[in-house]
């Protein structure tokens, strides 16, 4: 059993080794900062040059926008399940529905986004093709609602009853109690769950690949097309070799580091909450 546990160590070491060793070519060619800060992604043989900046910006853009869109809905679901209808039958129905939402594969979200949401954006006259940052963040937002809401639900429902009764006994209404007692008490946990959801959004691949429009430059706005770190890998890995392959793997390494850091922060916050 100790040996089995040791495999996790080997696995992690192997992961880092694989990513680092296969991305050194790109980092050696362009330099670490040079690779990260360069917005050019040009595969034409004569002017071949690769930089990650466009995709880093595209990733941050879509992920934060998705977080923004999902916020009111996942907070509502968390309050619905963790406070207003805590322990009621209707809350377990909502929970099951949200769980199912989490079970739908990314590629089906992509299909649905392409065939059902994209025409909506075109009809609204926002964008001729429909593809872009806006479309992918809307679908991403729906995809991360389950992650953001299920953890926040736990933290909101963990607010001790004696604090709530204390607030009510001073004459508070339910919303005043929630605003001044429940939410502040559960705030670190809620923040942690949104950070985890952000981590999900950053790494989400298929749906974004199908919806973002796949252009290799810094998106100029909400309605512009772009690429995220995950989507450029998914899109171009198949036909890549040499320095391009190495650059794609380097983007993978960066994505790995970013998501690992984000998860780490969320875990640290939750550990602090658990101890308090």
């Amino acid at each position: 059993m100790f040996f089995a546990a040791f495999i996790i160590i080997l696995l992690s070491a192997g992961i880092i080794f694989a990513l680092v060793s296969r991305s050194t070519e790109a980092f050696q060619e362009y330099g670490i900062i040079g690779f990260i800060a360069n917005p050019e992604w040009d595969p034409r043989p004569a002017t071949e040059e690769y930089g990650a900046l466009s995709f880093i910006i595209g990733t941050i853009y879509t992920a934060f926008l998705a977080l923004l869109f999902c916020f009111p809905f996942s907070l509502a679901v968390a309050l619905f399940n963790g406070e207003y209808f805590k322990g009621k039958k209707i809350s377990s129905v909502v929970r099951s529905v949200v769980d199912l939402l989490a079970g739908i594969p990314s590629i089906v979200y992509g299909l649905w986004g392409f065939y059902a949401v994209r025409p909506l954006i075109i009809d609204l006259g926002l964008n001729a093709q429909g593809f872009g940052i806006l479309l992918s963040s809307v679908v991403l937002a729906i995809m991360i609602i389950p992650y953001a809401s299920s953890l926040s639900t736990e933290f909101i429902s963990m607010v001790p009853n004696n604090l709530k009764e204390g607030a009510y006994s001073l004459g508070a209404t339910q919303i005043e109690m929630i605003r001044f007692i429940s939410l502040p008490t559960a705030s670190s946990g809620i923040v942690a769950s949104y950070i985890l959801a952000l981590g999900r959004a950053l790494g989400e691949t298929m749906a974004v690949t199908m919806l973002i429009g796949n252009t290799d430059r810094i998106p100029k706005g909400l309605l512009d097309t772009g690429n995220t770190m995950a989507s450029v890998i998914a899109n171009q890995f198949g036909e890549a070799d040499g320095i391009k392959l190495s650059s794609l793997i380097a983007i993978g390494l960066l994505l790995f580091i970013i998501t690992a850091l984000i998860n780490l922060v969320a875990k640290l916050i939750m550990k602090r909450v658990a101890r308090a």
Partner: peptide, 11 residues
């Protein structure tokens, strides 16, 4: 490992 994006796992 649990938080690793699936595309990175693919790589």
């Amino acid at each position: 490992l649990q938080g690793m994006p699936s595309i990175v796992i693919g790589i």
